[in-house]
Each structure stands twice: as C-alpha cells, then as structure tokens.
Write a protein that binds this DNA or RNA. Structure first.
Lengths: 246, 246
DNA sequence: GCAAAAGTGTTGTCCTTACACCCATGC
DNA sequence: GCATGGGTGTAAGGACAACACTTTTGC
C-alpha cells in the first residue's frame, strides 16, 4: 500500500506527481506470459501446446500464452492463461524466467515472462481443442514458433533440477499413486534408470508417504499399494541443508 | 533472426502485418531492471545501495535500477545499470525474478526484472558517490523504498542457495584468496559456523583450487597460503547429480 | 502356468562429522 | 612470550550403490 493509491487523479501531492512524471518518462513495452504446462502420461513427460495463429508460423507449435492486461499481476496473468486454455485452476505454477531479446517476436518487441505449471493429465481430459490444443511428448518436439523451443528447453532443465529438490512429481500424479508410477516420473524426467529397491527405500525414508490401505486396480499384474504425499508434514519438516555441494 | 528484420516499415508482408497488428493491440508497460549488487568485506555480506530520488521515499534506500530502454535486452540493461552506477564491467550477473505487483511503484505500474551481481569490494573503491552510493551490511538494513526490502530478501535467499551449488563465492573474493577468507564468505552468507578442518578438506577435495605458492601479507598472524579457483576445470568437470534430495 | 511387476535386506564403500594439538608470524 | 589464526589426521556413524529371489495378480 502506497500513499498514492488513496489519492485521485485530480489531487496528486507534489511527491506523487514527481513519481508519476518519472514513470511517464519511461518507454513502455508489450508484455506477455507463456505457460509451459507439463503433464505425465504413458511413462512420458508431455507438454501442452497449440498451433500458432500467426501466418508466418503456420502449423508451428507454441506455448500457451497471452498478453498481460493493464494492471494485471504476472502471476495472475499466468493463472488466467492456464484457466482459459485448459479450464483448470489450483495448478502448481512457478515463475521461471523472463525472455527479452528484441527480435524474439516478428510483430515487434515483446517481452515474455514464462511460468511452468505441472498438472495431472488424467484430471484434465482436454475438453477444449482450440488451436489443436494437444499433449506432446517433450522429447519428440522438433520445431516451434518464436523462441519457444529455447524456452521449453530452459523449462525442462528447470524441471529436472526442481524435481530433485522439491516434491513436484506429486503434482503430476493422481492424489493416490503407486511407487512404480512415482519412479516412472523420475525416470522419464531425469532420463535415467533407477534401482527399484533403493528408490523405494529412499522415498520411504523421507517419511512423507502415507499408506492409503488401497491397492491399484485395472493393472495387468500384481497390484501395488497406493500412497498419498503428506504435503503438510513436508512443509513443516523440509530440510535445511547447509554446506558446499558443487 | 526473424524474417521481419530484413523488411523495412514500408514493405511489410501480409504475415508480418498480421503479427505487427497483434502486438500493437497489446497494452504496454514501463519496465525497469534492478541490480542487487552483493559484495563481501570485513567478514560481512554487503549490498550496494543508494538513496531514493523520489520525495515520498526521501532518505530511504533503494537498489540500483533504471528503466529499460527501447529495444534493449534486459541482460544488457542490467549490465548498463551496473556500469553506470559502479563503473564496473565483467561482473557476475544473473536474472533472479520479475516483480509485477501493480502498486509496487507510487508513480504507477512499473514492472521490474531483478538481477543479482556479485563483486569484489576491493576491486571497486567507490569512485562514484551519486545518491550516497554506499555498501550496507545486508543484515543491518531495516527500511527500503518501494518493495526493495522484499526483493533484497528474495535475492539473499537466492544467493544462499546458489552459493552452495555453484562456485559464486569466488566472485566476491580477490583472484588470490586464503582459505580463511573463503570460509568467512560461506559463514557470513549462510549464517553458520563451519569446522575449519572439514571445510578445508571438502574444498580441497573438489580439486578446483590452485596453490599459487604465495602467502598472505599484511596480516597480524601467521600468513596463509593463497589459492586461485580453476574455473576452467570446474566447467569441464562440474558434477551432474541425479537423485532425490528433499 | 506364465508374464509382469510387487515387495523385501545385506554388504561394502564413501562421505560427513566431531574433535585437539603444534606451528608460524606480528606485535 | 603471547595472541592469532594456519595447518593437519583419525575414528565412528550415516548415506548410498550394487545386487536376487519370492510373491501376487491377470490372463
């Protein structure tokens, strides 16, 4: 809350005028947000993309983006874009980076702030199909419009790092999940094979898993136990590592 | 490089017009960059601040910032601000976050992208003193203009995390440094006491330190060896940890 | 009964931690 | 000679990596 909020346009104090004039002297720039919406299905990391509206990018894939509205917070804009494009709210969303190369948009200078969101594909059955909205396996995407290939690469790296330090994987899975599903998420995102016994030991040792006393159904093999992740406990106890580690 | 760069204003193709019109329909916003310039001296983490020009913030401290110029990249703008305010170039600079609350500036909506920079206080003797440019110990700063307190807190957290995973500390020290100096950087930033023997073992085990065969001078006790950090070797060998760690 | 994945323990290695004494220099 | 920090080693405990067999279910 600043003083100027309480003052209408006719009645600015000298101080406020000073600040207003200063800001008026700044060049202004069009701003967008882009959402990199990750999902996980069929043992692969996927990302939700549409086809570009612009003629010079015809047929090329783009991230879900929109311009930021007057007086709209970037976080709010990202939430709005996500809602408009997918119908979902309550999705994990985090600011990743702001991209500003003057030539990144053929229509002129546009600066974009990129958010990553992680959601459970099964929760969202793609009711909207505007601009051929579809899930694409991340490692099969070849060409994209604008600088979106580079942005996607940055976000994939971000996710790779982030998932090792924070319990993001659980945002990609159903509320109740099996340890195999959890391990598949890690293996797909990190692109490695993990030892099953060591993985289970490690995850169990965190103490954040809750046994639901339920089992998988509709699997063609011995069903595994289903667990939930105790976010509440995690937020209380998350570790505070101190040291050097590079 | 996009096609539109090669076309002058009189001769836009239909595709480009399409994109240009789209961008013209976007609202525009004034943009700034702010640099959080960390330094280290007298065993304390410090940050370079000035006094605000704005009357309603009279006497309050602010980060070093400026508006982004037309067609200027954010990275370039941050480098420019740093150069203008401190005279230094070749400084470690990294984008941290973009802040966008509509009421964060009393002069109206301004969005700012924040960069952190780390430099060696001894290399820069504060030749400029505009707006009472001075080093302030981070943990003694109470009040700041705008949302700069919050931004500084975000950057301090960022630094705390970053310094544990990357060899940033060396950007705060002279090229040749003693192990005690290095340890002080970690202790000040992480706000912990570290065991001297274990610290030295750990740092030595990375293999990135080069013994210079020189010793400290002008110290009031037994002089320690001076080392340099082998950034080249680090970039070749930096570890690629895979696992879960939260 | 067979395919597919669930579930489970042990051992060796390595890293981390805790801890104490003598040494070199400036004053 | 005394104050200040430099420089060093070891032992115990904890974390991680490697590794194989039995069990349960669907078909």
């Amino acid at each position: 809350m600043t003083e100027s909020q309480h003052i209408d346009g006719q009645n600015l104090s000298i101080q406020d005028k000073n600040a207003v004039d200063l800001v008026k002297s700044y060049p202004t720039v069009p701003l967008t947000v882009d959402c990199v919406i990750f999902g996980f299905d069929e043992n692969a990391l996927k990302v939700l993309l549409i086809k570009s509206d612009l003629m010079q990018f015809q047929g090329k894939l783009t991230l879900l983006g929109d311009n930021v509205q007057s007086n709209e917070d970037l976080d709010t804009a990202a939430i709005r874009v996500l809602k408009q494009r997918t119908g979902m709210s309550d999705v994990y969303l985090e600011q990743v980076h702001t991209f500003s190369k003057p030539d990144r948009h053929p229509g002129g200078r546009v600066i974009t702030t990129v958010y990553a969101s992680l959601l459970n594909i099964k929760h969202y059955e793609l009711l909207l199909h505007d601009n051929e909205l579809k899930w694409h396996p991340v490692n099969q995407i070849t060409e994209m419009a604008f600088d979106h290939s580079m942005i996607l690469e940055t976000c994939t790296q971000w996710l790779r790092k982030r998932i090792q330090e924070h319990p993001l994987a659980f945002n990609l899975l159903p509320v109740k999940f099996s340890l195999r599903q959890l391990q598949s998420v890690y293996e797909a995102i990190l692109n490695v094979k993990l030892d099953r016994r060591n993985f289970r030991k490690k995850v169990a040792s965190t103490g954040f898993l809750c046994d639901t006393d339920e089992m998988e159904t509709n699997v063609t093999h011995r069903p595994g136990k289903l667990y939930t992740f105790d976010f509440k406990l995690y937020n209380q106890k998350k570790r505070n590592f101190i040291g050097i580690d590079f």
